[in-house]
Design a protein around this nucleic acid. Sequence first.
DNA 1: ACGGCTATTCGATGAATGTCGAACATCGCT
DNA 2: AGCGATGTTCGACATTCATCGAATAGCCGT
Lengths: 122, 122
Amino acid sequence: MVRSQQRRTPLHHPDVEEIDLLDVLHALADPTRMTIVQTLWAEPERACGTFPVDVAPSTLSHHFKVLRESGVIRQRGEANRRLNELRRDELQARFPGVLDAILAAAGPIEPGPVEPDPVKAG
Amino acid sequence: MVRSQQRRTPLHHPDVEEIDLLDVLHALADPTRMTIVQTLWAEPERACGTFPVDVAPSTLSHHFKVLRESGVIRQRGEANRRLNELRRDELQARFPGVLDAILAAAGPIEPGPVEPDPVKAG
DNA sequence: ACGGCTATTCGATGAATGTCGAACATCGCT
DNA sequence: AGCGATGTTCGACATTCATCGAATAGCCGT
């Protein structure tokens, strides 16, 4: 079966209609979280540990929680990993143009503290 | 002369190029400040005390400072009043579509705690 | 079953933030 | 000059928040 789809917490995601604009803005108004979103903007899916940010795992987990509970990203458990994806279409439906404009304004991933290329890393 | 154009503080406004996207998002991620911006979105200019928000004058002053220093609004001293205006064109030039999309998503002024129409209030 | 990897949870901590009241400053009017 | 209206500044206070380290939980190889 698909037992490897969930860890243990139900991982609450707000419904599209429940997504609050101010929560989204607050979620995006942080350097670490913006980097995460920018990365997901360029790539559809990514595991938690593969983002070009330089914070402790517990801090990273906190940021993912903020992004998830604000409705910006969707997380699903894949084995011992956790795959994150942007809720682009849903956000576009709820707040047309907002995410696009913000991400366009943010530009491509800024030269962060960690290499965003884990392919040949090691 | 135009002595009535300034109170005493130079009222620092960031240059267009200096405006930071995360600062703008953070400024907008507050109910009181969003209400202020929504109000200015509908009306070009307005004095500080005429906004449909229910906070102490000192708190209001704080919020205007946040909005001004983030580059969202421009304040100029007119007599003993202080006129506030949205930096629409400048923000549009710096972050195209961002303010428009956010304000469109925020919709018209939500029924706040204070009547925006004191004329027939009663 | 054991160990390693990935990610979460918990508790603590220091910084930032929203809020207020009181005092002050500036302006216009009398 | 004095007064009232409009905002700002300051100090205080409670809350939120970003951050970390240590402990925990789940999964996959061996």
